[in-house]
Each structure stands twice: as structure tokens, then as C-alpha cells.
Design a protein around this nucleic acid. Structure first.
Lengths: 220, 220, 220, 220
DNA sequence: AATGAATGAGTATTCATTCAT
DNA sequence: GATGAATGAATACTCATTCAT
């Protein structure tokens, strides 16, 4: 009965997920006890097993449900933008907006995802790939529209973009200090990724010719 | 006496570090047993404790010793290059070279570093910061020489570069497939980071004006 | 709710204490494994840690709870006796009665107490001092009533009495043989401690003059 | 060759025994590592095994060699005394003299002997029995000479005397404070054990009639 | 559904003892 | 004899998971 007013979300399920995010963020997956989460969620230890098969599954569920929300939001917003470069800027902006909105979740995803990716059996992490593929989709669209060089591989570029954003996420969530504002991070990330670190109007104009040249083709 | 022929390295110490790298890479820090490492190193479990205080310390030592070697090598090579943009290209190149040379170590650093950074008490990770600061050093030099825009913050750019490289490291070490070659990764990373994802000679020339604009200043 | 029918005692707590007493008595504290106690108590190893912080604490709890009961009983019974020498006799009698009633506990207290006293951190052993102070209380009362020489120090006498009883406890609990009955021990302990080893009606009357003389005042 | 000048004692053997006494006294047998003793003795860990079969044996050897010396000394001195009560006084005096001379050894014997007695396999502790039998020998002699009541059992009295002295040893070696001097302890121990705690010249003369009476024969 | 007491498999670490040098 | 590096058996304690209530 009460489910009717539950908007499709089970109260306890949500409670536990929130408690897990907070606790994993604070102590890390391996240093978090099920009882820590239960205490944070104000439920009994055993109750967690009514909603999640085990500790691994809890992390996976937490991650997938969060990514679902995020992906939906991001795709929705991008659908209103037509210019692919603008889309990329918007993606970056949303990434930092999400971090600001849910610091704990950002921390868990950024810090715990790699481990779980590798060591939780059977976990293929489709959602994360879907998130990355939003980026490569934008890149491909940009390449078709002549806005991104065709020889750059979207599968690599999406990782470059995500890697950069993820690393900036880390300094934001881990640093106690406020050395950089979210806005600083967003602005530099956008500019550096879109336009590159090097100034284009290089008087010598040289470095655009073969930026990827190896040492055998050193320029004079 | 026998130390004379030891090239300044303790045999068992090295043996254990190598075994730890291999095992942490394969199973992850938390899923690796001391006995796994001992077996891989062909020593008794107890022997590990003659060389390392505990499991945490083993990871930290492994990391610091490796970074020492890497930092020394990278700094040495960069000292022969004067152009800062070339230095950055060389840095990227060396990063991938190192990954190719020691895949296991690359994996451990890429996957385990974040966790250990946060959850191993007392670990401040000076070496990692030193590695990152090689990048920001190059950036600053480039800014002084007018090769990088002065409003970009070196502390952020270094993270963008490292984040991108680190993410590419992951796909190389984790992917069983050979979808991308190290050369692919290096070339795209160099080009994207140095010159940006977007084509500069954009006929409309538009998006370079304010790539970092926030949503309040949306262009029509 | 179920606690109401528990007579104020937790079942498992009691089970474990009893098992620990039995096992410590049989094998000694340092040679007893937690799993030995768990097996004797018919609980899982981990269950012991639900009731006791660790092995040391288990010994301390065992000791303190037992001493509480004993001290209560002894004080209760002594309160009905007015003559201090009779009190001392009653104390001695109760000591042996307790030993007979719980041989295992007597053994643990007699054999393990010294070690734990010294080597278990933070353990000040208030209860044991309280037990000893019952004796010194009786002595002081006797001194006030002129029944015990005032120059004897109660703090020393209490140790002499306890030491003698404790040593007799040992031969009773450790000796497999029944060379001496509890009644033998009680009778001789009472007589020797109250009246002394030497016969008083010594015809020569000599040795009572200065029993505590040092070697410098040797009699011819 | 050097053994000739060694007076039958091996240097290292003595060094190790001394180190063991000191270390066992400080940390207890079970909390002492062989390496602690080796360090204290300025020898290598392995060297200890050239002189003693194992850790248990070291404790036993330490104890037996010490007791041999003590028994020899005590017997020698007692042989010059004819009066048995004087002998007992002398025994008590020597006991405290020994404690003063070697506090560490006193502590080890007093604290560790009970445990080892019970838990070191095959150890029958002949020497300790011999020491106790010096006391019962004196008692028997005194009984023959009419100085000690014949109904008191020498096997029990020897334990009463030893137990009292041992307990006083404990307070002397364990107490950091100097609440009681050795002389206090000796004097009170001698007087209490020889003449009893209760004053003999009780005006009412009552309590000497049946000090060992049980509660069934309570006097009015 | 919810609880939380009970379980017991799992493991880092210690340290007595050995033995090649 | 002397060494001390190496060994590996031994164990207290933790914590994910279960299940009777």
C-alpha cells in the first residue's frame, strides 16, 4: 500500500544506497563494514541483505543506479544542443555540476570504480561505458561535421576527456583546501581539452604540423 | 661481501617487490594475500616481514621506489630538451614507454594508487606529487616563454595531462584486446592535449572565443 | 523480554566464563586457545568476542566477577561474627570451602593471577586488593581489641595469611594425590597462623623473647 | 683451553642465564622473545640454542642452577645452628637476604614458577621440592625436640611458611613503593609464623583451646 | 519485513627454531 | 663455536552472511 506513495522507490533501498555512498566515500569500500552502512542507514545489518545480495552487489547497484540517473540527465540536456563542440562544453560543465551536487557519490565513483571494475566478478560496468560513449558520440558527430580531426580515434578521445575530468574530480573531492574552485576546474578543463594546452597562435606556427611525432623526427 | 656483487640492491628485497607488483596487478591489493606474494617471490611468508613492516608498507615502498626510478629517468631525459612544448611531448612519450616496459607496475600505480593515497594512514605520497610537478614545471616554463596561455593554472593542467594519460594507461593495461596500440594512444594523447580536440582552423572560427563560457552566456 | 527469565545472567556470558575457567585451569592462560574455550562453551569462536573484548579481558572479567561473588559471600558471613580471631578462623575456613566448591576457579586464580596482575595492561586488580583487605580489616579490629600485637603491620600480616592459604590452595588443586584433605589444610593453617608454629609453653621459654632478632644479636 | 680458567662455568652460558633472568623478570616468560634475551646477553639468537635446548629449558635451567646455589648456601648456613626454631628464623632471614641480593631472580621464581611448574612438560621441579624440604626438615627436627606440636603436618607447615614468604617476596619485588622494608617483612613474617598472629597471653586465655575448630563446635 | 545474535571461514603477523656460512 | 637470515607453523580476531524470532 505504502508503495503507492513511494514513487517507485523503496524507502529502505534508498536509505541504504545513500548510507553506502556516504560511508564508502569516507572509508573506502574495503574499509567499510556492512554494519557501518547499517548504522548510517538506521537499519539492522540483516536488512541490507533483504535489498542487496551482498556487499559487492551493493556497490554495483549504487553505481548503476547513480549512473542511470546521470546518463538520463546528461542525454536529456545534450539533446537540446546541436553544435558538437558546444555539446562537449556542456558535457564538461554537467560533469562538474554533478560533482558539486553529490560530492560523496563523485568520490565513490572516482576512487572505488577502478578497483571494483577489476575485482568484482562478473561486473562488466555497462553503465560506465554508456557514460563514456556519450563523449565518443559527440566526438564522432563533431568529426562528421568537420569540427574534430578525423584521424583522432573517438575511443581514445573519450578516455582522454573522461580521464582529465576524473582527475580533476579527485582533487576537488579529496582536497580539504579550496585551492581551486569548481569554476576554475571547469574553465581550464574546457579550454585545455577543446583548444589544447599550447597556444595556437604560435609565432613560429610550428607545433601543429606533427605534434605526435616521435623523437626520431625531432624538429630543429 | 656478497653485497659487493649485489649492485646496491638487496636480492630478497627486489624479489619481493617484483612479486608484489605482479600479484597486486593481477589480484588487486585487497585481494592479494601475503602468502600469494611469498609464493610468487619464492620466499617464506615471514621473510616478507624482514624487509617490510607490513602489507601497507610493502605497497608504499613498491610505489616510492618505482617512482624514484621513474622520476630520475624522466628528469634526466627532459634536461636535454629546451623547448617546453617538446618537453611535454617527450613526457607523454616517456609515460607510454614506461607503461610498455612494465605493464604490471603501470597497472598497480594506476589502479591501486588512489585507494592507498586515501586509506593508508600516514602516507602522503610525496613521490607522486613530484611526478605531477614535472608536468606543472614544464607548463610554467611554457607560460614564461609565451607558449601556453598564462590564465591557465599549471596545478590544474598537470592534473588534466596526468588524468588523461592515466586513463589511457588503464585501457592499455586492463584491456585484453589490442584495440589500440601504445602508438595510437601516444599520438592521440599528444595531439589532443597539446592542440585540443577541436580543429583550430574552424572556418567559422567561433568556438575559440569563449570555450569556457558558462551557461549564462550562451551564444545563440 | 527473555532477559526477565534470565535471572540477571546472560546465558552465553556465563557459558563462556565457565568454559574459560575450566580451560584456563587445565591448560593455563597462555596455552589456551580461544577456539578451545569456544569448543568447551559450545559456541563459535566469534561469539566469544560478542561478550568479551579479547582474551585478556576474558581473564580479567572471569576474575572480577568471581571475586565479586566471593567477597560478597565472605563479607556477609563475617558480619555475623564479632570476635576478630573467630573472624580470622572463619575467613580461613571459607577460603578452603570456596576451593572445594570450585576447584577450577581456585586453580585459575592461584596460578594465573600473578601473571595477569603483572602483564595484562591496564589491570589494577581492585577486587583482589579488596579480598586481601578483608584480612587486614580483621587484623586491625583485633589489634584494637588487644588480640593481636600492635607492632605487627596489618598490610604484611594480610599477605602472610593470604600467601599461606594460596600456597595450600595450590597443593590441593595441583596434586593429583589426596595426601592432604581440605580439613587437614584448614586445621593446620588455622593453628599455625593463629598460634604460630612454635609451641608456646616452651619449658625454656626462650624463643619468644625476640623471634625477630637479626643475626647480630645471636644468642649463645 | 680457556675452560681451564673458567671455574667450570661457561661465560656465554652465564651471560645468557643472567639476561634471561633480567628479561623474564621485566616482561614475563610468555612475553619475552628469545631475541630479547639474545640482545640483553649480547649474543646472536642462534647462540642461545648452543647452550639451551629451547626456551622452556632455559627457564628450567635458570631455575635449577639458581636453586642449586641457594640450597647449598642455605644448608651450609643452617648446619651451624642447632636449635630448630633458630634454624627456622635463620631460614626466613636468608630468604629475604636472597631476595634483596637478586631481585630479578626473586621475581622470576615467584611469578613464573607456578606456570612453568604446571605447563612445562616433563618438569618435576625437584629443586623446588628440595628447598621446601629444608623447611619440613627443620619442622620435623623441632617436633622431635618438642618445639613444634606433633599433630601439625610438616608437609603442610612447609607450604604455609613458603607461601607466606613467597607472597611477601611479591610485594617487595613488584611494589615500586617502599611501603615496607625488607626488615619489616622479615620481622613480621618471623613473629607471625613462629608465634602466630594472635596474642598468646590473652587474658581470657580462650582462643588457644581449639583454634582449628569448625563451625559446628562454636563456643558460646 | 525487520532484526541482530550467532556463525566460522579467512589472514596478517609473530617468533621459536634451524642451518648455511 | 657464532651468527642472524630464513623459515613456516600457529592463532587471535574480524566481519560478511545467515536465520530464528
Amino acid at each position: 500500500m505504502k508503495k503507492i506513495f513511494n514513487h517507485g522507490k523503496n524507502d529502505k533501498h534508498e536509505q541504504i544506497i545513500r548510507a553506502a555512498i556516504k560511508t564508502f566515500a569516507r572509508k573506502g569500500f574495503y574499509n567499510t563494514r556492512i554494519s557501518d552502512i547499517a548504522k548510517e542507514a538506521n537499519v539492522a545489518d540483516g536488512t541490507i541483505y533483504l535489498y542487496f545480495k551482498n556487499k559487492d552487489t551493493l556497490l554495483v547497484s549504487l553505481f548503476e543506479e547513480s549512473m542511470d540517473r546521470i546518463i538520463g540527465m546528461v542525454k536529456g540536456r545534450l539533446s537540446h544542443i546541436s553544435d558538437p563542440i558546444e555539446k562537449l562544453c556542456a558535457f564538461i560543465e554537467m560533469h562538474f555540476e554533478l560533482i558539486r551536487k553529490d560530492k560523496f557519490l563523485a568520490e565513490v565513483i572516482s576512487v572505488e570504480l577502478r578497483q571494483s571494475n577489476k575485482f568484482i566478478k562478473e561486473y562488466k560496468n555497462i553503465k560506465f561505458k554508456e557514460y563514456l560513449n556519450i563523449i565518443s558520440g559527440i566526438i564522432r558527430e563533431a568529426q562528421e561535421k568537420g569540427r574534430v580531426a578525423k584521424h583522432l580515434m573517438p575511443g581514445i578521445l573519450k578516455r582522454i576527456v573522461f580521464g582529465a575530468l576524473d582527475e580533476l574530480t579527485l582533487i576537488w573531492v579529496l582536497a580539504g583546501d579550496s585551492k581551486y574552485t569548481i569554476e576554475n576546474l571547469r574553465r581550464d578543463a574546457t579550454e585545455a581539452l577543446i583548444h589544447g594546452i599550447a597556444l595556437k597562435n604560435n609565432p613560429r606556427g610550428g607545433n601543429s604540423e606533427d605534434p605526435g611525432n616521435d623523437k626520431k623526427s625531432k624538429r630543429s
